[in-house]
């Protein structure tokens, strides 16, 4: 028996918005420790890794490990039926081919049950090596979304360069060139407005804009985003999900041919 209750169903709605542009389907691995998802996009350029810890749920029970193969477009249709203030409960029997999403209004006067068929998906998990990143940058998530959106107008790629002085995003193409520099903030009223840089060595890497734009769909999950970079390895873009977990996107760089 698997049962997970979340008073704020809006969290799962936002998680789905954050992954459904990159992934058509994915396996939700449920265990005693929580719900995990790891999947590559169709082109195998990026990897999504989601972790929702069991202690972050309002109620959580998972007697046996369960892998739920889910069509994300179908799940998205169901999640759209939930009000932001509804209480969500996901339920599945052991070895089930169905998962039930139950939404209850706050006053419990309306109860909705949606059953969704599960799929058998080939499970392919990648091992992600522990890495000490040369640069770890934290910045407001809305700022990051704005920058990648703005630079996408100039070209398919963006160069992200980090030095002690700051972080620079650059793009160029037919219409010209664009550079956006952010310096580390010295003092801000709110922590979420801060730009912080921890740098061991300067790094400059090139990435495809379209993936960064897809990652930015996670913006509503967190006021801050963390970028981790080292030479010649994938970028990590991480959004914390309240007290319950995180979503990480790994993006392979563009390298000289």
């Amino acid at each position: 028996m698997f049962e997970a209750r979340l008073v704020q169903s809006s969290i799962l709605k936002k998680v789905l918005e954050a992954i459904k542009e990159l992934l058509n389907e994915a396996t939700f691995d449920c265990s005693d420790s929580g719900i995990q998802l790891q999947a590559m996009d169709n082109s195998h350029v990026s990897l999504v890794s989601l972790n929702l810890r069991s202690d972050g749920f309002d109620k959580y029970r998972c007697d046996r490990n369960l892998s739920m193969g889910i069509n994300l477009a179908s799940m998205s249709k169901i999640m759209k039926c939930a009000g932001n203030d509804d209480v969500l409960t996901m339920k599945a029997q052991d070895n089930a081919d169905l998962v039930t999403f139950m939404f209850e209004s706050q006053n419990q006067e309306k109860v909705m049950d949606y059953e969704m068929k599960l799929m058998n998906l080939d499970q392919e998990h990648l091992g992600i090596p522990e890495t000490d990143y040369s640069c770890v940058i934290k910045l407001p998530s809305q700022e990051f979304a704005r920058i990648v959106r703005d630079l996408s107008q100039f070209g398919e790629s963006v160069v992200i360069s980090c030095t002690k002085e700051g972080i620079k995003f650059s793009a160029g193409g037919d219409i010209g060139n664009a550079n956006i520099k952010l310096a580390q903030t010295s003092n801000v009223d709110k922590d979420e407005d801060a730009v912080t840089i921890e740098m061991q060595e300067p790094v400059s890497l090139t990435f495809a804009c379209r993936y960064l734009n897809s990652f930015a769909k996670a913006t509503p999950l967190s006021p801050q985003v963390q970028l981790s970079m080292s030479a010649d390895v994938p970028l990590v873009v991480e959004y914390k999900i309240g007290d319950i977990g995180h979503i990480r996107y790994y993006l392979a760089p563009k390298i000289e041919d």
Partner: peptide, 14 residues
């Protein structure tokens, strides 16, 4: 010219 790398060339299958 830059070429897009694949994520599988950095992370190996478990």
């Amino acid at each position: 010219k830059n070429k897009q790398a694949s994520i599988t060339s950095f992370f190996t299958k478990k």
